[in-house]
Amino acid sequence: MNTPIAIEIVMLLAGLLFVLGIVGVIIRKNIIFMLLSVEIMLNAAGLAFIAAGSRWAQPDGQVMFIFILAMAAAEVSVGLALILRIYHQHRSLDIDKLKEMKG
């Protein structure tokens, strides 16, 4: 498997995915889509970790990805539960409708 994939390219891919995730979070009004975009961002970060781990031949990158995975699982479960409650209270998933603070 000693294919010469340049690490810069992998990092560029991770950066692209991350930025796409950010764009998704900003432009979407639906909470579910925002949560999906957050997942994309998490994956992008994980990709960067794994690329770095492979680059230095260290297991730490993969360990970090596993932690990210655990964190994502917990986040998604709590986040989805919150979405359920929000939907039951507001009858909507529009994030702008939840703006109750007037600043």
Binding site: E8, V19, L20, G53
Partner: peptide, 25 residues
């Protein structure tokens, strides 16, 4: 996002350690 991406690219490309082959862990 474009600004952010440009900066990320710039930093990644100008990073000092040169490219190495990736290894299996």
């Amino acid at each position: 996002s474009t600004i952010l991406l440009a900066e990320l690219f710039y930093l990644i490309i100008t990073a000092q350690p040169p490219s190495y082959n990736l290894q299996t862990v």
